[in-house]
């Protein structure tokens, strides 16, 4: 009886979540579908007020740039810190202190991060409002999520495999690249994609640091850019075009869906095969 009720509970929860998600997608699709056309993807925003006509090309490119920089920035730190905590640091006190700091970063509201980025990176370091600044702030925002997932993945590696490798006199670095990373890379890609989509949807951190009302396609990391979520916000809040707003939201959701489906696609076409292929080419 208990078993049955738990099963029922799970089924109801899963169905509810699926229904809600389908509703959101369905709603956006029905309203946004009209606004979607080939031109919408490849044209820059136009019209008076700006955005009432044209497309979201600049915002798509801008969002991809912000997300790319944030992901690279965060990945480098998350991987190195997770590796350090799991395989190198022996002192439990230092470990818990570092984890405490990471927890604090995760708890900082995104608008505060944005304000910090503005006052420190834009004003004090004089980098200016740019993709780099926005990307870094977004990177700080997603870093704790990435780091915690990386750490969890690394902790799941069977310690005996590591011991077996070390017991042959092999050093930790070789063990890390040859045994641990090949075991973990799929989960790491998954965590990275999840964090990247989190970054792509965020507005507050880039509001003051990198994203602007209108900008051309960025020609360097030091130029400001448009971003989909901010563009969407402006379309609605300024009452510019509801049709374009729905279409923009749909584009954003589809982009997020694409990012999140990367690991699944890699799994399906055999991520291992690709890695093996690259390795063979190298050797």
């Amino acid at each position: 009886m208990k078993h049955l009720s738990i099963k029922l509970w799970s089924i109801i929860s899963i169905s509810l979540v699926m229904i809600i998600i389908s509703c959101i997608f369905g709603f956006l699709f029905i309203h946004g579908y009209e606004g979607i056309s080939y031109e919408f993807f490849i044209k820059e925003p136009n019209g008076m007020p700006l955005g009432s006509e044209g497309g979201v090309y600049n915002a798509i490119i801008g969002s991809i740039c912000f997300t790319g920089i944030a992901t690279i920035f965060s990945f480098v730190f998350a991987l190195s810190i997770a590796t350090y905590l799991v395989f190198y640091e022996k002192n439990e006190k230092i470990k818990s202190f570092i984890r405490f700091i990471i927890g604090i970063i995760a708890g900082v509201p995104s608008i505060v991060l944005g304000l910090f980025g503005y006052s420190f990176l834009v004003v004090y370091l004089k980098i200016g409002i740019s993709i780099l600044t926005g990307g870094i702030v977004l990177g700080i925002m997603i870093f704790p999520f990435m780091e915690i997932r990386f750490e969890k993945t690394l902790l799941e590696v069977d310690i005996n495999l590591i011991y077996a490798s070390l017991s042959m006199g092999v050093n930790r670095t070789y063990t890390f690249f040859k045994i641990i990373l090949p075991i973990c890379y799929k989960d790491m890609i998954r965590a990275t994609c999840l964090s990247a989509s989190f970054a792509m949807g965020a507005t507050a951190p880039i509001l003051l640091t990198g994203a602007v009302y209108y900008a051309d396609i960025p020609n360097s990391i030091f130029s400001p850019a448009m971003a989909l979520p901010l563009h969407l916000y402006l379309l609605i809040s300024e009452g510019i075009s509801l049709k374009n707003a729905y279409a923009t939201a749909l584009v954003l959701i589809v982009l997020l869906l694409l990012i999140n489906s990367i690991p699944t696609v890699l799994d399906m076409i055999g991520g291992n095969k690709i890695v093996r292929f690259i390795k063979r080419r190298k050797s």
Partner: peptide
């Protein structure tokens, strides 16, 4: 060096631990 010692003194564990290769 620890690595040198381990190269000279090999070890096999209770449960077989083949690498996933």
């Amino acid at each position: 060096e620890k690595e040198k010692i381990r190269q000279k003194i090999g070890m096999v564990f209770q449960n077989p631990v083949p690498f996933p290769l």
